[in-house]
């Protein structure tokens, strides 16, 4: 279990099926990806099947929660529901296990591609926690 919990006002998605499962794990502060026992591939977003070999019911596994910034953008316009938050950094995080996910990078002195990051959790709406990432070491605030 990670310690820091950030608070942003944000938008909780309408989640269904495997999406709901993933967000339920998030409530317990577990970042889940999937692993296929048949072909040994990790995948994210979660799916009903392994997108590589079509094996059924890929296994939910907890990611280590570390990775790098694969790419990012500093967004200066606030979409509905994100009032007063801009600019903020949206990034694609490449997890240690391989898959990438969209997230936010927070508490960074600066941001650059390739920067190592680790997971924190943010509450964006009542009952909805989502992963965010902070730089590891000296790049952190």
């Amino acid at each position: 279990m990670t310690s820091s919990v950030y608070d942003f006002s944000g938008v909780a998605p309408a989640a269904h099926g495997e999406e709901s499962t993933w967000f339920e794990y998030c409530r317990d502060h577990r970042l889940m990806i999937q692993h296929c026992a048949s072909c040994d591939q990790y995948q994210f977003p979660p799916r009903s099947i392994c997108a590589s070999c079509l094996a059924e019911s890929p296994q939910w596994v907890e990611a280590a929660g570390t990775g790098i910034v694969f790419t990012y953008t500093n967004q200066y316009r606030e979409p509905p529901g994100f009032k007063g938050q801009v600019p903020y950094t949206i990034a694609m995080i490449e997890l240690e296990e391989g898959p990438r996910l969209m997230s936010r990078v927070v508490d960074a002195k600066h941001i650059k591609i390739g920067m190592p990051v680790e997971i924190r959790w943010a509450t964006i709406a009542e009952g909805t926690d989502v992963p965010v990432f902070v730089p590891i070491g000296t790049d952190s605030l």
């Binding site: 944000g10 998605p13 993933w22 967000f23 953008t73 979409p79 994100f82 997230s103």
Partner: peptide, 12 residues
């Protein structure tokens, strides 16, 4: 038609 895993981060 947003992706549930992207929505919380507010990408325009």
């Amino acid at each position: 038609e947003p992706l549930a895993y992207e929505v919380p981060y507010g990408p325009m």
